[in-house]
Design a protein around this nucleic acid. Structure first.
Length: 636
DNA sequence: CTAGGGTTAG
């Protein structure tokens, strides 16, 4: 390295400067402070390299403070360069703790965190002692690696060196333990430290929540003395992650009652909860809150906003958010493409995909999933095949099992069952339950019972705990008149203790989520709801509506007697929508399963007879019923 | 120069 060429002895002010001449004649103070302030405002590596070169000339490379600052910038700043930092570091003769820390910090945030541990090893060997900053950096690397053994060794050293009482070190340890799933160690440590602070509690809560133990997480949350916005975010995002979106909403309201101001992180989590629930009003409220507070919509927040609007049925608003965020990167394009996909707006999704390519943004695996889904839901078979083939050819990206799943779905939905099956048989990986499921679904739609039976049997082995598979297979046997086999499948399901996920439809009004199951009579307005539905049926009758024994109604074979098709959850939710909203209001219903065919027909007629738009969210996509038609064009 | 929280898909 260049440093060795410097006549180091003659550059040392003590050596070559007569006592009478002040040292700053060789290291002029304004020179040094100018360099320091240059480094402070340094914007990128280009500029930094110039400063570095200047430091060689002035000899400031030998001064610990400016070289440390330079090192720090290269190692940790967003526009830094870790390998350059490493070269600089290698050239330094006298490395102090700060310099080692800077390097360890840099590597702990890099994609090579292991190097941080190696550096620490060297640091100890060169007899430079760690300080209170060293451990958090080091443990961050351990967290990235889930390196439990190393964490335990570092734990011991923390205790030996007397940093065991230092909050940052302890909390870092707690974080690694919880993150690597070692909750026992975490809890032991948590119990042993006397001065637990909010950070310690937050880490514990997060750890329990992420390990699936929501009960303990909630308990700790209730117990903890002082909750800050991160505590609330932790419990709320834990709820969202566990699919407990209603609880998330509840906690959010509690948080506001407690006077804690929401920040952009907790709002992102809440938008995700709204997206899950289909709670458009709540979601809009949060959007308005963000605007009113003048908060900046960063790419992540922008994506959650788009996702919320799309999943709550308002794609137009999602598009408007998309146009307003200047630099969203791939995630933003992906979010909007996926949003259009679930609304059946495949053409627009493809157009945006093309536009994205033109902009020079490279699609990622999720983008491909999104655009292929768009093709699938809109029946754009040729386009889908073209894009699928371009993955390998244009992007050098081998399709993953999800992409094959999309293609099986695309071909199967379109009735190209032979092609779909062939793809399953020839794909380069072992088909999973999702792939088989897509094929089975296609068999049901197109009534290919022979193939359906074969695939159904496979699925009961591959995915034995999924209730829907048994129902599908049993229905196929029912339709082919093989009653005994249908009963056998039902019995197998029962014997294996598999439950059918009950169909549930919800509608959100004034921030309250109203849920309905088939035949539900638990709602306070039950009488009015059923009366309303009877009146609706009456007026639909004039349009020629009558209940048909469709294949979907067979899904309820078991409860056929008690759950008439007229009491399906979708219908109850629509009826409730009618009695609780003004004429002309859009009715928004969210269902956890696929919409039943009879309910689909009924909704189309209702939209015409009552001039009401009904937006219904399915397990996978949206249906916009308007003037007697559905946006899915009956292709779903 | 340090610790804890967010999103897009499935």
């Amino acid at each position: 390295m260049a440093l060795s060429h410097l006549p180091s002895a003659s550059w040392s002010p003590q050596v070559c400067t007569p006592v009478s001449i002040p040292a700053n004649q060789f290291f002029p103070m304004d020179q040094k402070s100018r360099t320091l302030s240059l480094l402070e405002t340094c914007s990128g590596m280009e500029e930094l390299k110039q400063i570095h070169a200047q430091m060689f000339k002035t000899g400031l490379v030998l001064d610990a403070i400016p070289i440390s600052r330079l090192l720090s910038f290269c190692a940790s700043s967003a526009s830094g360069d870790l390998s350059y930092a490493h070269l600089v570091f290698q050239g330094i003769q006298q490395r102090n703790t700060f310099m080692w820390n800077a390097m360890i910090r840099g590597y702990s945030n890099s994609n090579d965190p292991e190097e941080a541990l190696l550096l620490y090893h060297h640091m100890l060997h060169s007899s430079v002692p760690p300080n209170d900053y060293t451990f958090p950096f080091l443990l961050k690397a351990c967290a990235a690696l889930s390196a439990l053994k190393e964490t335990e060794q570092i734990h011991t050293q923390i205790l030996k060196t007397g940093y065991g009482f230092q909050a940052h070190a302890t909390n870092s340890l707690l974080h690694v333990y919880t993150k690597s799933g070692s909750l026992t160690s975490a809890h032991r440590l948590f119990n042993s430290v006397t001065q637990r602070d909010t950070v310690s509690w937050n880490s514990m809560i997060d750890g329990y929540a992420k390990s699936g133990n929501m009960e303990t997480a909630r308990e700790l949350f209730n117990q903890m003395p002082a909750k800050n916005v991160i505590s609330w975010t932790t419990i709320i995002s834990a709820c969202v992650g566990a699919g407990l979106s209603k609880e998330a909403l509840h906690f959010f309201h509690q948080m506001q009652s407690a006077g804690v101001e929401p920040d952009h992180v907790v709002l992102a989590s809440m938008l995700s909860a709204c997206a899950h629930l289909g709670a458009l009003d709540q979601g809009r409220w949060i959007h308005a809150y963000i605007d009113n507070k003048g908060m900046q919509i960063d790419p992540v927040l922008g994506c959650t906003l788009m996702d919320m609007y799309a999943k709550c049925g308002d794609v137009e608003e999602a598009l408007s958010v998309f146009r307003n965020i200047k630099k969203g990167g791939v995630p933003a394009w992906t979010a909007i493409i996926t949003g259009l996909a679930i609304h059946g707006r495949g053409r627009e999704a493809i157009d945006l995909f093309v536009e994205m390519e033109r902009t020079g943004i490279k699609p990622n695996v999720i983008t491909f999933t999104g655009v292929l889904t768009a093709c699938s839901y809109a029946g754009l078979v040729d386009e889908g095949i073209l894009i699928f083939n371009s993955m390998e050819r244009v992007y050098n990206e081998s399709p993953s099992i999800e992409h094959y799943g999309c293609m099986v779905d695309l071909l199967g939905r379109a009735g190209l069952l032979k092609e779909a099956e062939e793809l399953v048989m020839t794909m380069p990986m072992k088909p999973n339950a999702a792939v088989w499921g897509a094929l089975l679904n296609a068999c049901c739609i197109h009534r290919n019972f022979e193939l359906g039976k074969r695939i159904g049997e496979i699925l009961l082995e591959v995915d034995p705990s999924h209730g829907g598979r048994y129902i599908h297979l049993a229905n196929i046997f029912t339709m082919t008149g093989e009653w005994d086999l249908a009963v056998k499948v039902r019995r197998l399901m029962k014997d294996r203790g598999v439950m059918k996920l009950p169909g549930c439809s919800s509608i959100c009004l004034n921030g309250v989520v109203h849920e309905f199951l088939a035949g539900d009579r638990s709602h306070p307005l039950t009488e009015e709801i059923y009366l309303m539905w009877d009146r609706i049926v009456e007026s639909l009758g004039q349009e020629g509506y009558y209940v048909t024994a469709t294949r979907d109604s067979l899904l309820d074979l078991e409860e056929e007697k008690e759950t008439a098709i007229h009491q399906h959850s979708e219908k109850l939710a629509i009826a409730f929508g009618f009695i609780s909203t003004e004429p002309g209001t859009v009715i928004r219903v969210t269902k956890n399963l696929r919409v039943c065919e009879d309910c689909h027909t009924a909704a189309k007629l209702i939209s015409k007879v009552y001039s009401r738009e009904i937006v219904m969210r399915d397990r996978t996509r949206f249906h916009l019923f308007k003037d007697g038609n559905c946006s899915c064009k009956d292709y779903w």
